[in-house]
Amino acid sequence: MTAPEATSDTPATPEPKPAVTSWRDSFAVYLQPRVLIVLLLGFSSGLPLALSGSTLQVWMKEAGVDLGTIGLLALIGTPYTLKFLWAPLVDALHVPLFTQVFGRRRGWLLLSQLVLMATILVLAVADPARSPWFAAFAALLVATASSTQDIVVDAFRVESLPESEQAAGMASYVAAYRVGMLVSTAGALFIVSGFESAGLARPSAWMWGYVVMAALVVIGIVTALAATEPAQSKGAEAATHAQNAAERVLHAALGAFSEFLSRKDAFAALAFVVLFKFTDAFSGTMTAPFVIDIGFSKVDYAAIVKGVGLAATLIGGFAGGFVARRYSLATSLWIGGVLQAIANLSFSWLAHVGV
């Protein structure tokens, strides 16, 4: 039998209404085990950033290292910029023993975290007053291990979360990343000050402060052990099992770069990414030693970062979202660029006013 044709007397079957997600369901996605794993990995990614950046610069300033040398230490952050160069290696190569036991993503994750803990401990025993360049080299190792961890966490997050949980996962990751940065800036400075108040000499206080930061890497290690290898990673590993290491690396590298370069105005986009926040990167690198140099204490700086700094970051994030929703992309970028210039000019005013 054929279905009767719809007539004016035959009521049309109503289309199902799209399901409305309740507030409870929207919140519940953040409690999914996969999202919680990503949240804890976000903390692990954010923790090391300041240890080779602003916190290290405060340490060096207190150790008597001149501002010119501290400014050159901005190069320590180079691995975060160039990590795309060895991302294909991380994506394609297997880690002996780790990959067999934990899988491709978790194996690299655990290896990078163990190396990260070891390099932070090496930095802890460095003495910037006597050998600032050894401390800088140790910090470069920390940045390299940290950026490698970032590569793996990004891949793990994308592969382990279904599309419906990607937004919640990214929001959780960014929030926890900020908390990790807060712990390694304000938290580390408060810990060092606490050790000094307990009677430790300043070099010993800084050493034990960094040891505490190294111990916090355990949070990421436990998270990696508790996680499960993404199904997508297992499938990719099985598909490339017959290829040798060189073939896997070449395939991953060519695929990533050719896909990007095939896009319209790829080089213009790359230049924009590099240059739009160029001055912000320079001023951000020197903020901590500059604030200490004009007379603020590290406890003052920690309080600013923890209080006003965190509030400004959160408010700025919501404001940026509003601007991007209200105006065109080009207009939003102009607004951001002008505000960025004004913010950097405020350092000149602060240098004139002082504490």
Rank of each mutant, 00 (worst) to 15 (best):
L111V: 14
F282M: 15
Q57R: 14
V299C: 04
A269I: 09
G46S: 08
L270P: 03
G199T: 01
I70S: 02
D9T: 15
L329R: 13
F190W: 11
L140E: 06
I292N: 12
V308L: 13
P230Y: 02
M60P: 04
F137A: 15
V174Y: 10
T313L: 14
I151E: 07
S172V: 05
F27W: 14
R104V: 05
G169V: 01
A3G: 06
A145C: 02
A242H: 15
A176P: 04
V152E: 00
A129S: 13
G307Q: 02
G354D: 06
A341H: 01
L123P: 07
T285E: 03
L111C: 12
G235Q: 15
A246T: 13
L89N: 11
R34V: 06
A288L: 06
A19T: 13
V179L: 11
V212L: 11
A92P: 03
W86A: 10
L216D: 00
L111R: 00
Y80L: 02
F260G: 01
V249W: 01
T21K: 12
A239H: 03
L350Q: 10
T223A: 13
V218M: 11
A124Q: 09
D265T: 06
L270K: 03
A330F: 14
V142P: 03
L111G: 12
W86P: 07
P132G: 00
S45R: 00
A186F: 07
T7F: 11
A324N: 02
K306P: 03
V273K: 08
Q113E: 13
D66T: 11
A124P: 11
G187V: 07
S112G: 01
A63L: 02
R106M: 00
Q243I: 03
V222A: 15
A266L: 03
I342Q: 02
E165L: 13
L51V: 00
A12V: 13
A239N: 06
S172Y: 11
A281S: 14
G209I: 07
S8V: 12
T185M: 10
H94K: 15
L47T: 01
R104C: 07
L73A: 12
L85T: 05
A319W: 04
L345H: 06
V125Y: 08
A87W: 00
T69C: 02
G309I: 00
K306Y: 14
I191H: 02
V299I: 11
L123T: 10
V305W: 04
A143D: 01
V305G: 08
T81V: 15
D25Q: 12
F27L: 15
D300L: 09
W133D: 08
G320E: 04
D91S: 13
M213T: 08
L73K: 06
A50G: 06
